[in-house]
Structures are given as C-alpha cells and as structure tokens.
Design a binder for these strands. Structure first.
Lengths: 236, 236
DNA sequence: GTATCACTCGATACACTGTATCGCAGATAG
DNA sequence: CTATCTGCGATACAGTGTATCGAGTGATAC
C-alpha cells in the first residue's frame, strides 16, 4: 500500500488484453453509471462489469474506491470552462459559478462528492487557480488574503446553493411530482404542520411565493455575494 | 410499508422490556456513535448493540436507516439557539449562522447529512421559520420572495463555508498534522505541482497567506454576504 | 527445445452493510 | 384451560469494499 496520492502514481502500462483498461476508461465508465443511476450505481463490481472485467482488475489502476471518486470529481472539474485571463472580475467569477452549476446539473452526483474530500487533482487545482486569478493583481484586492477570502466566499455560496438546488430537484423527481406545488407532494404532514399556524412565514413561502426558476434565483444570490465583495473592495 | 414520513408516525408504545427503547434513545445512541467515530460508525447493528438490542428491533421505531439519519439531523437542528424575535436582522442572521457553524463543529457529520435530503422535521422547520422571521415584516423586504432570496443566500453561504471548513479540519486531522503548514502534510505531490509554476496564485496562498483562524474567516465571508443583501435592500 | 522461474492477475473469501422473511413465544379472548 | 392472534427478532439474503494467494503465463537459462 503506497502512501502516494493517485495523482502521484503512474497507471500501469497497458497490457495486451481482450478488454484493455486504463484509468480513463474506468473513470468514464464510472461517470456514465453515476449519470444514469446515481452514485449508488457506482460499485467496483458494476464498473468492472461495464468494462467486461472482474472487480479486482480495477485495483491495478486505483488503490481504493475513494480514489476512483476523486478521479471522477477531477474529470468533471475538467469539463468546466474557465474565463479567459483579464476579464472583468465580476463577469469572470459569474462565469465560473455558472460553469459549476451547469456541471452539477449534468452530473447530479458531483456536488455530493465535492465537499466530502479535498480536491487536489490537476483540474481541480487549475480551477482554483483560475478563480484566484480573477481577482489577483487588482488594486482593490492588494493582499492574497483578500483574494482568497473573496473567492472562497463566492465558492462557498456556489457550493451551498447548487447543493440545495440539486437536492430539491432530486426530491421533486423522486416524489414523481414535477408540479410546482410540491406542497401536495410532501404529503399531509406538511399541510398539517403549516395548519398549526406555528410557521406563518414558511406557509407564505409555500402558498404565496411566486416560483421563479432556479437559474434566476441562483443569479440573485450570486449578485448579493458579488455586491458585498464589491462594497468592501471599492476603489473609490 | 407505510408511505408516511417519520414525523407522521407515532412511535410504538413502550413495552416492558429488559432494555427499553424509544426513538429518543436510538437517536441519542446514534449521535453518540457518530460524534465519536464518524458516520461510518452508525450502522443499525452498532446502534442496536449500543442499546443491548438486536438490529431488527430498531425497525419498530424507524422504517429505514435514512429515517434515523433524518432524526439525527433534526435533533441537531434542535440544539441550535434561535434569535429572539425583533432583533436587528443582521445580528439575527449572524446568530443563526454562528449557531449552525457551532453545531457542525460539535457534530462533524451534521454538515454531510445536511444537503443530502430535504429536512422536514419539526426542529428544521422551526429553524427555517426563525430564519425567515429575521427579515419578514421589514420595509426593506416587502415581498416574501425578497425574504426567501436573502435568507436562502445566507444559508447557501453558511452551508458551503461550514462544509468546507469541516472537510479541511477532517483532512488535517487525518493527515496527523495539526501544523499550519499543511503543505508538508499533503506530500511531495503538492510541492511538485506548485513547483511547475502553473499555479502561481495557489502557491502564494500556500506560502504567503497568513493563516487567520477559521472563525474570523467565516465572519468575513458572512459580512460580504450580508453587505450584499443590505446594499440591494437599502431603505435609503 | 526444454525446464525453471518470477510475477501478475483475478477468482475466491471475508467481514460488513441494510433489510425481508417468518417461526415462535407471549399476550389476549372465549 | 385452550385457541387464536400478534409482534418480535434470529436467521437469511443480496450487496458492498477489499485481502489473499493459487493458478497460469510469459520470460529466462541452459
């Protein structure tokens, strides 16, 4: 058992085999399974079966299932388009945030893995680097700590918001109701709870709120965060 | 198999038994196990064993393991102190945010469960209600949608930030290094990656940033968010 | 061409998970 | 006292991640 990270270990040379394997193939298969059936569908046996291999063959390429999950996460990070250098910082951070959200919608399992372990894959690092670059070298953010604080805040919001959105979407889908009135879907329990009168604001949210779409909702929250940062780091 | 939520089903009447059981006892035992050894330590067998019972006895009180997790989450929500009504909204939201963070530090598994499923337990609902109440009826937030948007943004940030912080703490602890220079702990891989020169900002973060404590960091981010909300909803 | 070796690979096995099933014990009714 | 019912929980099952180690294959030596 080596103590090195996956990223540190070269994958074994490809052997002539009826069904060739590689990290890329394994990760690709795992992502496909996860996209189709959720993270539960990603078991070493199932991934191996999808590649016409026995479960233990995977252990030549990864050392642990968690490593496979790390590789999947980094792969998705790689899908996220990064802003070109020099763009205006609000636009750049907005672009990254939208990229993140879009990736999570394509791969609903992504956000579940995001918080669980630290991401040190090359794509993850490039992502963070690009995020930091949006603010670095601007006079409004003189110290690297200013940059880090602002970027981290935006990322924290993005992670939380996306996670929330994905969870809600999953919930709606699971309950079968695509209807906007999920009050009915959540069963008589909610109705009864709201009827107690102990949750008046919650009731108003359920009944009175206009159900604006998730995207504009996300943008509103993002604007709040960016505004807050701009307020504190105003050149004026 | 009933389709009702846990909250909807009364627990069975307590029977005379050498080792009495109840939802409270089960949840308490599960939380203790999770606090001590992480979520992995929470298996139905282990929880049951901690109560001197067979695994299947739990199924009289819960229908599924997920229900147990839901009950644990709601229990922790119940620990979070809510602001008294009428407090100034920034102070009130800050208090809720701090309460959430503190709860997550006491129960590091909490944040992992938070995003996974929707929370509909009584304590969760009370928490949301109290959060909404901090902004409701203020002239700066006329529509319930304004209230919801602002509160959700704060919550999204809090969730993301806390999750990040807990994950990092867990990582540091796992690597054994409590030292601030976790550059060394993350092994030669990181060193080599940074040495490539492809991640100049990241390198500056690692080497130049002063490692301010997590709490003040959290407060900075929270201020950004609250500032942003205040900017958009200024009575002036 | 043959015999030996080294080594890799993956079938088998293990400990563990969540939960369905259903025989049996204890309570209840007549 | 007997018959019926009910609900508990031991057992069983399908699945998980992964350690082990015997078989089989390719390379090497003579």
């Amino acid at each position: 058992m080596s103590n090195e990270l996956v990223w540190d270990r070269p994958e074994p040379p490809s052997k002539p085999s009826p069904t060739p394997l590689s990290r890329d193939l394994i990760v690709e298969a795992a992502i496909r399974l996860a996209d189709e059936g959720g993270l539960d569908e990603v078991s070493l046996r199932k991934v191996a079966a999808a590649l016409n291999a026995g479960p233990m063959r995977l252990y030549g390429y990864i050392e642990t299932k968690d490593e496979l999950l790390d590789l999947m996460v980094d792969e998705v990070y790689g899908e996220i388009a990064l802003p070109e250098p020099g763009a205006e910082w609000r636009a750049a951070l907005t672009r990254i945030a939208h990229g993140m959200r879009a990736a999570a919608k394509r791969h609903p399992w992504f956000i579940d893995l995001l918080g669980g372990r630290p991401h040190r894959g090359p794509n993850s690092l490039a992502h963070i680097e690009a995020s930091l670059a949006t603010l670095d070298d601007r006079p409004e953010f003189p110290a690297i700590d200013d940059v880090l604080g602002a970027v981290s805040t935006v990322m924290a919001f993005v992670h939380g918001a996306v996670r929330n959105e994905i969870t809600e979407a999953r919930d709606e889908q699971a309950s079968g109701m695509t209807e906007e009135q999920w009050q009915a879907a959540s069963g008589p329990y909610m109705q009864r709870m709201l009827a107690t009168g102990k949750f008046p604001r919650l009731a108003r949210v359920m009944y009175d709120a206009e159900h604006t779409n998730a995207a504009s909702w996300f943008d509103t929250g993002l604007s709040y965060v960016l505004d807050g940062i701009a307020t504190r780091h105003n050149p004026a």
